[in-house]
Design a protein around this nucleic acid. Structure first.
Lengths: 146, 146
DNA sequence: ACCATCTAGTCAGAACATCTGACCATCGTC
DNA sequence: GACGATGGTCAGATGTTCTGACTAGATGGT
């Protein structure tokens, strides 16, 4: 926030993130997945292969349980995810990716790869590898969840 | 969106950005600037030293003129910015930083420096410099506004 | 000068995202 | 078993953002 010409690292990180998200959303809308929003995507992106608890999703996405629940409801109504009871805890419900969800994930992977390829073309292989390594290490101190 | 374990670059960029924004907001609230929100800050961050037109702010922040106008109104009511007529165009109004705005900007700079210092301590000087250089170059293809 | 067109900004209304607070059901433990 | 902790929902409020329609002023060609 509030920088004139010297770009702080946080802000510099913002541009690629925004660009990637915009590309993903645009590609999805183009392929018929036009009933998905950025907030829904951010939640959905954290669902594990076997399903994830709502509370865990909320925690990782840094939103409240209520917000997560609301977004998951929408995703469920649109057919992207499904709720199943957690066999190990009768209170909990696992959120799992449904068929339509897998389809959109496959598309997202493609687009991610395409965009990263463009970035690599701009920066060069070595710089991109360094960038990824630095960001991964930075995550250790900027991501409270792993 | 939608990554399981291989972290795409866009998402990797998200963590530092979110961390920086959270730190800024927390520090501001602590120092008494508790009437500012993330969205307002994102707009305010793009105001130039001599003032900036609403339309330009909207364009750079990738929001509509209406959204920008709304946020600027709030910032004005809180005393962070002020509206002055643009001498070169009677239709336009320049948004300028007001006294209270300068105070919060000074604080933001301090916090940015502090957080970056922490990151540098974690990554090392050289890696941090490489990271900044890579992100700056990446901005050329991910930021439509310069 | 004059009109067509473009640009800066506002108004109105709606959708969405997000929060706080209160609540219920179930789990784990002493 | 009773009790505090945890998973999740309900209700209501606030904030952010959009689309569409509009006004006022600028600009360029004839």
């Amino acid at each position: 926030m509030t920088e004139p010409d010297h770009q702080n690292l946080g802000l510099l990180c913002f541009y690629p993130h925004r660009a990637m998200e915009a590309r993903l959303l645009a590609a999805m809308a183009e392929e018929g997945f036009d009933d998905i929003t950025a907030a829904q995507g951010r939640i959905a992106a954290r669902i594990g292969p076997q399903g994830t608890r709502l509370t865990d999703l909320a925690e990782q996405a840094l939103v409240t349980k209520q917000t997560a629940g609301h977004l998951v409801d929408q995703l469920e109504r649109a057919g992207y995810v499904r709720h199943v009871p957690d066999p190990t805890d009768a209170r909990a419900r696992l959120v799992q990716i449904a068929e339509r969800g897998w389809a959109v994930i496959a598309l997202a992977r493609e687009v991610e790869a395409r965009v990263e390829a463009e970035w690599t073309a701009h920066l060069g292989e070595e710089t991109t590898a360094q960038l990824r390594a630095a960001l991964t290490r930075l995550r250790e101190v900027t991501d409270p969840y792993r």
